Amino acid sequence: MKAMLKIVCALFLLSAIPALAAERWQGLPDAAPLPKADKTGTAPVNGINMYYAVYGSGPPVLLIHGGLGYADVWGAQVADLSRDHTVITAESRGHGRSTRNAEPYSYDLMSSDYLALLDYLKIDRTAIVGWSDGGIIGLDIAIHHPERLTRLFAQAANSKIDGVIPTVMENKTFASYIEKAGEVYKKISPTPTEYDAFVTQISNMWASQPNWSDEDLKKITTPTAIVLGDHDEAISRAHTDYLASTIPGAKLIILKDTSHFAMLQDPQGYNKAVRDFIDH
């Protein structure tokens, strides 16, 4: 009987190994639900209608999602930051509930959209927490319109296309994100049948942008954090180190046991990193 129990226990432990082997950075958890917004709407900017939502009160923080993403990814961050900040979420042109037009995508154009949204909301200066494309948009604003920023927390951003890891599209977690983004698009976009056309349009930008020189990065005067998950699938650590060493005074933050999707995988740790930077 004891021998049989030992065999059963051994088989149970062996069956548990695959589950135990799945590391946090390999998961893609659903976002926490967003709290009720104080205000939502669409702003007419640069020939599109840009979706936004505003939560809480206090010093403003603008959260900018990544490529193919949408505002709901920030649920845990909005719940935390809106306790003592005015938190603005929005969706970039063509993403989520925002419309797009035929104008070619560029980071300058997308930055202009967000600045026009801030004008619409009568916000002169804000901190930005940007993820992936959102971090790149933050860098664009820091280079060209530093007067609009208080601080920049740029996670998984790149300044040149060679900062992207070539095998990113082969990564299962990243592939799951793209699939989920397509499903959400069909549910909330004003043009639910145009996901492929939208991806094609924005991919034309990704083929050549961003492409900033060292001199461009050295112009940045905004207090900046360059942030990366230690298992990021998309942006290389070498490029992240380059950004942090080239932008004057930049702080390098490496988020432990997370990937490109750190805000979902470790929301508590992510929120602490944001607060430790933007509130000091």
Rank of each mutant, 00 (worst) to 15 (best):
I226H: 04
D257K: 08
N49D: 14
Y51V: 00
S176Y: 01
R275T: 12
Y185P: 07
A181C: 10
D232A: 11
V129G: 02
M1A: 13
K272P: 01
K172I: 10
V184C: 06
A234F: 05
I7G: 00
V199M: 10
R97G: 00
K251S: 13
Q209I: 01
D38K: 09
V8D: 05
G249Q: 03
K180S: 14
A10L: 13
I178W: 09
L243G: 06
K36W: 00
P33F: 00
I202F: 13
T126H: 03
A273R: 03
F277L: 01
V199Q: 11
Y177R: 10
I178M: 10
G130L: 03
D214T: 15
V8H: 02
G75I: 05
A175D: 12
R24T: 12
M4V: 15
I7A: 13
A262G: 01
V8W: 08
W74L: 05
L149Q: 10
A10G: 15
L228P: 06
F153K: 10
K272R: 12
A3P: 00
G75P: 06
R151M: 11
R237Q: 11
H85Q: 01
I17R: 04
S176F: 04
D257V: 01
N171H: 12
R93H: 06
G41E: 07
A76R: 04
W25R: 00
L217W: 08
K39H: 07
P33A: 10
I247K: 06
S132F: 06
K256W: 02
P29M: 04
E179D: 15
I48C: 02
R151F: 06
L118R: 03
D72T: 06
L149M: 13
T246I: 09
H85W: 10
V8R: 09
H144A: 13
F261I: 10
S203H: 05
A197M: 12
M169Q: 07
P44E: 12
R83I: 00
A238D: 14
H85V: 04
Q77T: 15
Q265F: 09
P44T: 08
P60H: 04
L117H: 08
Y114K: 09
L14N: 02
A37P: 04
I88E: 03
S259F: 07
Y242G: 02
F174P: 00
W25T: 03
R237D: 12
D124Q: 14
S106A: 04
